[in-house]
Amino acid sequence: MQFSEEKLAKVKEIIARYPEGKQKSALLPVLHLAQEEFGGWLSTEAMDYVASLLQLEPIEVYEVATFYSMYNLKPVGKYTFEVCQTGPCMLRGSDDIIEYIKQVLNINVGETTPDGMFTLKTVECLGACGYAPMMQMGKHYREHLTKQKVDEIIAECRRNAAAGN
């Protein structure tokens, strides 16, 4: 398990942001890189690799990786729908959106479709309350969700997957 040259250069650049000897500060950003690079989740090997890169004890990495909700410690589907369910989104009907996605994809919250395409998660407030209901998909937010919009997003994902993106 090894980062690409490009990613290793990025790691170096990140470490250089901090004073000498404070490379532990790079842990969160480097874990993000590792998750991107190694299939969307952090295996024990991936975390151990990050530990060795930053000269940390593996437990220091496990402690951090398990604390933050954005690190996946289990494999996830190609597309992860992270639907916000906190108050402001609830007021705008997020419960219905979650139910609808469950029904359309035929999975429960926390599950991945058998084809490995979609994972459904519920999350707590993502700071898009004025654009509710919403979900995060990868790097971006999908906002003002309606059932129709959910259908479109699912179709879009399938199209992209079929096109090999």
Binding site: L28, E60, E63, S69, M70
Partner: peptide, 25 residues
């Protein structure tokens, strides 16, 4: 720019500092 990783508590200033140091928030 340092990205957090999903933790409301890191909005509390000392938790934020801990997180910026690469620790649990």
């Amino acid at each position: 720019v340092q990205r957090g990783a999903g933790a409301y508590i890191c909005g509390e200033e000392t938790a934020l500092i801990e997180s910026l140091e690469g620790k649990r928030g």
